[in-house]
């Protein structure tokens, strides 16, 4: 496969995520869309790692290939941490307002 298909797929997923963030107002779904974006990045990184693996120059340094996959691993770690905090915040807000609608979040403006 050429890398451009992977790029296309990842960017498409990423943009779908962005569109979701832009169009939805349920904060949980927005958060899910962000997770979608992160996954798109993960896919792209793995694809890139395999791209570099395919190029002849890199054969001498196999670590490079693993680098990106380790990075993906870290992204997952961070995502997990973020989810715990994010959901805690959302739940806290829900406890106080009984809503997760971001449109109601306009006490702070101007």
């Amino acid at each position: 496969m050429e890398i451009k298909w992977y790029i296309g797929l990842a960017v498409a997923l990423f943009c779908t995520g962005i569109v979701g963030v832009l169009t939805r107002r349920n904060s949980i779904i927005i958060f899910m869309c962000i997770e979608l974006m992160l996954n798109a990045v993960n896919l792209l990184l793995v694809a890139f790692s395999k791209m570099h693996a395919a190029s002849a120059v890199m054969q001498s340094n196999p670590n490079v290939v693993s680098d990106a996959q380790i990075f993906v691993f870290f992204i997952m770690v961070v995502a997990a941490a973020e989810v715990s905090v994010g959901l805690a915040i959302i739940v806290m807000l829900y406890r106080n307002t009984h809503s997760v609608d971001v449109n109601f979040l306009n006490r702070l403006k101007n």
């Binding site: 050429e2 890398i3 790692s49 395999k50 791209m51 693996a53 395919a54 693993s66």
Partner: peptide
Amino acid sequence: ATSLVQMGGGNSGLIKN
């Protein structure tokens, strides 16, 4: 954009490495 991706092969993605 036209670089090829190594499909299937390679062992860098394996848990040991």
